[in-house]
Design a protein around this nucleic acid. Structure first.
Lengths: 107, 107
DNA sequence: GCAATAATCAGCGCTATCGTTAACGATTCA
DNA sequence: TGAATCGTTAACGATAGCGCTGATTATTGC
């Protein structure tokens, strides 16, 4: 199981994907994320652990209040996934020469 | 659950991801795929059903032998996933102005 | 017609995952 | 010091997913 598998496994859950979308607006503490996805703090904590294990997010110690753990997005897994996607899409790039065939087959 | 969720759920399984990689070399019948991933035909048939439901592959009736079902990649889910990935990566694009902060935080 | 082949469907255990409540460190503030 | 808050870990029941064997449908070729 390579990196991309771990990334896709982490992104497979709708709750975790929603967390990713929430973090696009900036770092947030765990509790705020739990409230946003309507889930108990322990349940979300497990999801955050999966996201951390996959390297998709990281927790920073919030400077002002040491009880808060601010979660932030990490770029590496996403760029790796995009690289794999580019490889897959090369499949159709190769067929550009016989583009009509592909369109007909796609119907 | 929108399209991207179904796509990611389909790609979460390592076997299904391997099938995608195999199909990058061109269409193949179900039995050949089962042999390539060292799995019983019924087990792989279930995986192919998931991939079909997500629109990632489609089965064509092989012209010469109607018993064979040739599986082929479909582009739509992959482009949709890439669009979502681009949205996520816009998170770091916004931080280009304060690039030093991001690097320091990433350590 | 009849045996053989390709693929799927159906039913069965097994394991992993998910969400909840309860309990546990760590930190803040009166 | 002691109550309250934030986050995590632990343990439990419930659910869903995976792979197997056995049976079923469709097609091929004798």
């Amino acid at each position: 199981m390579n990196d991309v598998d771990a990334t896709l496994a982490a992104l497979a859950d709708p709750t975790r994907r929603k967390v990713i979308d929430l973090l696009r607006d900036g770092p947030r503490p765990a509790g705020e994320l739990a409230q946003a996805v309507q889930m108990s703090p322990p349940a979300l904590s497990r999801h955050l652990r999966v996201l951390r294990a996959g390297g998709l997010v990281q927790a920073e110690a919030g400077g002002e209040d040491a009880r808060l753990r601010l979660y932030t997005l990490r770029p590496e897994p996403f760029t790796a996934l995009q690289a794999w996607l580019d490889q897959v899409q090369a499949f159709w790039a190769e067929q550009l020469g016989s583009f009509k065939d592909h369109v007909e087959r796609g119907r």
